[in-house]
Design a protein around this nucleic acid. Structure first.
Length: 299
DNA sequence: AATTCGTACAACCGCCGATGG
DNA sequence: GCCATCGGCGGTTGTACGAAT
């Protein structure tokens, strides 16, 4: 007697999410918070598996998801953590605020793995790869200057990795067992952030960064922003103008007063008040909750 | 301009552990 | 203790898109 599937897969939609589906999911989560994922698609009017909804939300739609390439420091952190934790992407992600396990896993497979191999490091063991067979030709004599620079950078990275491996891999000295995992000194620095400590996002807990609310930043915003705030998320989704207005409104006003009736207004109101700039202006009128660099709440 | 190839990443699949009846 | 259910995780696949030919 096998397990039942997580949902009835007959008639369910698969593949890339449409803007309309995203809108429905966001609307539902903002209205109801994260609850039983199995029930989400039905209640939100989506022909999707609950699992698919959870994945879409956690990996893409969540307001605190950071978009864009990993920075150099983040990449180094991933390498360090991978040396200690292996392919435990969710654990690794818990040390990188705003990054998802899926994103880190993808970045590892597409970028870091290759980089390490090129540097002669085994991405699995983080130890130097055995020297190439003699058949492979040695590097040419006339190396370009920039190649020398690259080699120097790679040597630095190798030293960095070897230091971390020797610090953490085979001894307990200076390490700490946390949640069944052994952490090296470097981790202890970063241990104060863990996704496990992030509460489930409720409608009243959605964040807005001050930068995202200033008219100047919004006027110069582009799809290449490094952060993925609710606002630029909406820009990327190309939501209907009325929904855009509504979202801004709801994020800055209604949510804080537990008044979610604006959702109905926005969902049923296709008539856009073309006074669009007033929305931007109104953003500054309400007290909003923002998050500081040290992840503390402020109004 | 058309086709092929490689890359990046979103999404799916199947398994596992936790939990509750 | 057993079973059903759920959420979460890691591996893998599918697809869009840009570069190369």
């Amino acid at each position: 007697m096998g397990r039942q599937p997580c949902c009835d897969k007959v008639g369910l939609k698969k593949g890339p999410w449409t803007a309309e589906e995203d809108r429905k999911l966001i609307n539902f989560i903002l209205t109801n918070g994260q609850c039983c994922w199995r029930a989400v698609p039905k209640l939100a009017g989506l022909l999707r598996c609950g699992k698919s909804c959870r994945l879409r939300w956690t990996n893409y739609l969540r307001p605190d998801v950071k978009r864009g390439l990993l920075s150099e420091s983040e990449e180094k952190m991933v390498i360090d953590l991978h040396a200690q934790l292996g392919n435990r992407w969710s654990k690794i992600a818990s040390h990188l605020p705003g990054r998802t396990d899926n994103e880190i896993k993808n970045h590892w497979n597409t970028h870091i793995k290759k980089k390490l191999k090129k540097m002669g490091i085994d991405p699995l063991t983080h130890k130097p790869l055995p020297p190439p067979p003699p058949a492979t030709a040695p590097p040419p004599h006339e190396e370009e200057a920039n190649e020398v620079v690259v080699e120097q950078e790679e040597e630095e990275m190798i030293k960095h990795l070897e230091l971390n491996i020797s610090d953490s891999a085979d001894k307990n000295d200076g390490n700490e067992i946390v949640d069944g995992c052994k952490f090296g000194p470097m981790d202890l620095v970063n241990n104060d952030f863990c996704i496990d400590e992030i509460p489930v996002i409720e409608p009243h807990e959605i964040l807005l960064s001050c930068d995202e609310l200033t008219p100047s930043s919004s006027s110069s915003s582009s799809s290449s922003t490094s952060t993925y705030s609710p606002k630029n998320m909406l820009e990327e989704l190309h939501f209907s103008p009325s929904f855009d207005d509504y979202y801004s409104e709801i994020m800055t006003n209604s949510i804080w007063s537990d008044d979610l009736s604006g959702f109905d207004w926005a969902m049923n109101n296709d008539q856009r008040d073309d006074n669009s700039t007033s929305v931007e202006a109104s953003l500054l009128q309400y007290p909003v909750m923002v998050i500081d660099e040290d992840y503390s709440w402020n109004f």
